[in-house]
Amino acid sequence: MASALAIATPATPATSASMAVRLNQVARTYRAGTIEVPALKNVSLEIPFHRFSMVIGQSGSGKTTLLNLIGCIDAPSGGTVEVCGQNVAELNDDATSDFRARNIGFIFQSFSLVPVLSAYENVEYPLLLIGTPPAERRERTLVMLQAVGLAEQARQRPNELSGGQKQRVAIARALVKGPQIVLADEPTANLDSATGASIIELMRRVQAQSRTTFIFATHDQQLISHADELFSIRDGKVVEHRTEAGR
């Protein structure tokens, strides 16, 4: 197993932001034909750095929309979204892409690995996007694969990996560049309970080692115990915010 210290840690934010995420009266409405469907209704919240934050709510409550806005892959219908001190609305499309490439890692429910790339190449991909030098790229990729226990499977393609292994690759891919924030949208939903538990355990462990800000969306009440910060969301509104004592 690789040294915990070798896992990439996030760089110091460019601004002196005190919060990883700050949402102010954020609304997001989708339009289905002539019908407007509000997914988020004037949500205001702050998520601190270096915490394992969890957004919990039923299916359709607005968790994914919230994560999409924080991940800068969606734009709010109203209000402002600040991520690592950056007002996302001020960035154009390319700048938003670059911002995501440097600061945000994603872990998806359906793993979403690039099928034609090996586990190693999938993990290496984000480093290529930010222009990491080859030697450093190789070292960081191998360290991450070791950290998630997949050093032996480095050459295997996604279709040769189990669901749990795929999600481990996805976790390694999200963390390898040392992002400020990792967003995980129902990362255990497609896994059996034992594998899901091991994935949560892994995420908790690497979060503790890397001090990366994790924002984890789930509908599974059993996972609440893992959260440092808990945001309960219902019908597009944050109905509860709880900070776990001692964490």
């Binding site: 991940g71 499309d93 390319d94 892409s97 995501r100 490439a101 998806f108 996007l129 891919r173």
Partner: peptide
């Protein structure tokens, strides 16, 4: 879906 994934990872249009 793959396009969405790599766009989310930071690949430009």
């Amino acid at each position: 879906n793959e396009i969405g994934t790599i766009r989310a990872m930071g690949v430009r249009r």
